[in-house]
Design a protein around this nucleic acid. Structure first.
Lengths: 152, 152
DNA sequence: CTGCATGCAAATAGTTTGCATGACG
DNA sequence: CGTCATGCAAACTATTTGCATGCAG
């Protein structure tokens, strides 16, 4: 994937988010636009606080409540994927808002989004065995990333 | 699996937990034994508060801090599996403390532990693509259980 | 006996809520 | 212009911590 293709993809994500907002008659404030832009383009699965700090650099009066409310809205619209962790260090992916596998470094917290052969067969097996009607899933692998392996 | 086999399995889990404690020279207090027993035998992936309430019925002075500390200890010993959720409604499995798939009902919160063909091949593919050294994973499917499907 | 475990209360962190003010459509 | 969004502070929840006392080994 070239750089310009990545840029295009991010612009597409932002456009899609904006379309969802408009479709439901939600208002587009400068703060919202800033938050959407950050989430649509970030590669690093930011935390709420990370998004907050970044928005603040453009709109210094923004409150963290607005960040929470906007992210909650995007969650409802299925335009952001929430990665919750037991210790409350939740992170967000606005780039790929659909369920997909992650490789998470337990030391530096880096998160990768590798393309993996589908988990659809696993889903199918789950349905067979449980009778559940499935709507989404979570598939995360935890370990040490190459950098942290070197550094001990 | 018969009832007596299930009972045996739970006793085995408790025995294993006790062995791990003894191996590391941790003390066995009545409160700890009660908490271990609850976690080793519960089928329903209890919350901290659920464990707390149950211990209290036997030892009314038990504090919730003790429950937290004991669960933290069992986590370190890999004798309990923690299932964290974004809203902080964390749940614990002392029955099967190793990573395994779950089917989670988004309405009634029931959690099943179906036996599923291994995810080892997926793990292998992750290693190939990311270079991570993996130590554990999380695989959960969310949807409606059969009961909640009927009730609308 | 000696030190780890307990229990209480206070502290902390993340998130949510109420409400007056502001601004998008 | 009416309504929804914002910003602030207070409230809330889950969890952690400090410390005096208790009890397992």
């Amino acid at each position: 994937m070239t750089n310009s293709e990545i840029t295009t993809q991010k612009e597409d994500r932002l456009a899609q988010m904006l379309a969802k907002l408009k479709g439901r008659d939600f208002r587009l404030t400068p703060q919202r636009l800033a938050i959407l832009t950050i989430l649509a383009s970030s590669e690093d699965h930011p935390t709420v606080d990370g998004v907050y700090k970044e928005v603040r650099s453009k709109f210094p009066t923004t409150s963290i409540a607005t960040v929470y409310k906007t992210i909650a809205l995007l969650k409802e619209l299925n335009e952001v994927l929430e990665l919750g962790f037991p210790d409350g260090s939740n992170r967000y992916d606005g780039n790929r808002p659909y369920p997909h596998p992650h490789a998470i470094c337990i030391k530096c917290k880096k998160i990768l989004d590798p393309e993996i052969a589908s988990v659809d067969q696993l889903s199918e097996e789950m349905v067979q065995k449980t009778g559940y009607v499935l709507s989404f899933h979570r598939l995360d692998f935890f370990g040490l990333c190459p950098d942290c392996q070197k550094k001990g």
